[in-house]
């Protein structure tokens, strides 16, 4: 029970609840709250010393945000 595990579990739970029920129900708030959960998962991986998983997840996380942003831009343009 090191502090990384406790903080990562707290971030994962808080980010998931905040992404499920965002305060102003817009897609942008949902996307920003999803990043809290992503950093919690990264901290939880750090707790088990998985260096390769950390590198891969950190690289793919930015790609996921980019794809979501492109999807939201297309949805805004379509109306």
């Amino acid at each position: 029970m090191n502090p990384e595990f406790i903080l990562g579990a707290f971030l994962l739970l808080a980010g998931t609840v905040a992404a499920a029920f965002p305060r102003p129900r817009t897609y942008l708030n949902r996307l920003i709250n999803l990043e809290i959960s992503s950093w919690g998962l990264l901290l939880l991986m750090l707790s088990y010393n998985e260096a390769l998983a950390l590198l891969t997840f950190g690289g793919v996380s930015a790609l996921t945000v980019y794809i979501f942003v492109r999807v939201l831009q297309k949805k805004e343009a379509a109306g």
Partner: peptide, 11 residues
């Protein structure tokens, strides 16, 4: 990590 914030700032 800043790239993720920059992508979010685009929208």
């Amino acid at each position: 990590a800043p790239l993720s914030t920059l992508f979010t700032l685009m929208i």
